[in-house]
Design a protein around this nucleic acid. Structure first.
Length: 366
DNA sequence: TTTCCTTTGAAGCTA
DNA sequence: TAGCTTCAAAGGAAA
């Protein structure tokens, strides 16, 4: 796997991913060094997506079918297939999905939502990706984004890319597509896509002590609580009042890592390319695609993730990933391994009550 | 209704 | 420091 080596000097410990991408010469060398690996990954990608094309039958929706496909992806590959996939991708880019990476990255929505007076930032020459009518995030100056980096302004994209029927965009072309908006408009914007509106609708429980709402804050009502919240907030305007009645300690979510950001962007595309709907299956494909990305492509997401962590740290300096430990229920796998315990004591046992050592083998091993 | 699945990466903890 | 676990998103499937 094209892991990016750590060792960055960033006090956030987040720029480490970017180091390998700094120098083109070095990068070229590494690309050559990993020529086989990347070619192999391309093979995986091609065959995997090819599989999804083949598996247009309902059978592919079964998890078992996906696993079968995993076994087969290592065997089949051809440049022809890859070319065909590229063609498919091109068509789709002009349609349901367009993929200027990170152009609609959640951060780019924050400035609008966070501007105290709700006005536009006159000095910002950055492309306001979304919700520009609401202004600028107070922390935006802390984020040394450049338009070139954040908004690739994909000139290769069709000019009518936002004119796809059924897709409603509030802010015209400035809302570039880190997330593709599904038909139905804002009401179906994915949670992260709705950071802005989400934040605005958050009650006191969703407000950062600084008064700055943040999409990472969700009411703590249990599993999938944030999902429910995100879905309901569009259809239940009075949800806020209800929450005010029941003040609950907000949960600050972890910032998304590079792969998560990639997933959010690419999920719709993968779903469009195949008939799969199960997230588990989709995520497998996304994992393969992630490996198939070039280092430059991955670097974009690593950089975005680093920025997200940076902003997250700015907004919640006292927050720790540990805060959310134990928020989720114990997994079945752990329960099963509890019964098979006998190995050494889990290092986490003292942290999570009766946790037991649970070396999780990768699927390839399994 | 809740949990699992499945992916990668970041962070936290223990030995 | 190594090795491990948990969480982050997503949504259908299973319990």
């Amino acid at each position: 796997m094209p892991q990016l080596n750590g060792g960055g000097g960033d006090d956030l410990g987040a720029n480490d991913e970017m180091i390998p991408f700094k120098h083109e010469g070095e990068q070229d060398e590494k690309i050559q060094e990993n020529a086989f690996t990347e070619r192999d990954l391309a093979d995986l990608k091609s065959s995997l997506v090819n599989e999804s094309e083949i598996n247009q039958s309902p059978n592919v929706t079964a998890p078992g079918a996906v696993r079968r496909g995993q076994q087969g992806y290592q065997r089949v590959y051809s440049d022809k297939h890859r070319d065909a996939l590229d063609e498919v991708s091109k068509h789709q880019d002009g349609g349901l999905y367009k993929a200027p990476a990170y152009s609609g990255y959640p951060f780019l929505m924050l400035p609008d939502a966070y501007l105290p007076n709700g006005s536009m930032s006159p000095s910002s020459n950055k492309v306001s990706v979304v919700q520009q009518s609401h202004g600028m995030h107070p922390l935006t100056p802390l984020l040394p984004y450049s338009n070139d980096h954040l908004n690739p302004s994909p000139a290769h994209l069709p000019a009518d890319i936002n004119q796809k029927p059924g897709i409603h965009r509030h802010q015209s072309q400035d809302l570039s597509g880190f997330y593709s908006l599904p038909p139905g408009g804002v009401g179906q914007i994915p949670p992260s896509m709705g950071w802005f509106s989400h934040s605005l609708m958050l009650g006191p429980s969703g407000m950062h002590p600084t008064g700055i709402p943040h999409p990472a804050i969700v009411p703590s009502t249990g599993k999938h609580e944030h999902d429910q919240y995100d879905r309901n907030m569009y259809s239940k305007p009075h949800q806020q009042a209800k929450q005010e009645k029941e003040p609950k300690k907000p949960v600050i979510k972890k910032p998304l890592n590079a792969f998560m950001l990639y997933m959010k962007e690419m999920r719709a595309k993968v779903i469009a390319e195949c008939t799969l709907k199960e997230s588990a299956a989709i995520n497998q494909i996304l994992g393969r695609k992630w490996h198939a990305l070039t280092r430059e492509e991955q670097a974009k997401y690593y950089e975005l993730a680093r920025k997200e962590r940076q902003l997250h740290m700015q907004l919640y300096p006292s927050w720790s990933a540990r805060d959310n430990y134990g928020k989720k229920k114990r997994r079945k796998r752990e329960k099963q391994q509890d019964s098979n315990s006998g190995g050494k004591r889990n290092a986490f046992a003292s942290f999570k009550e009766d946790a037991v050592p649970a070396p999780i083998l990768p699927m390839e091993v399994l």
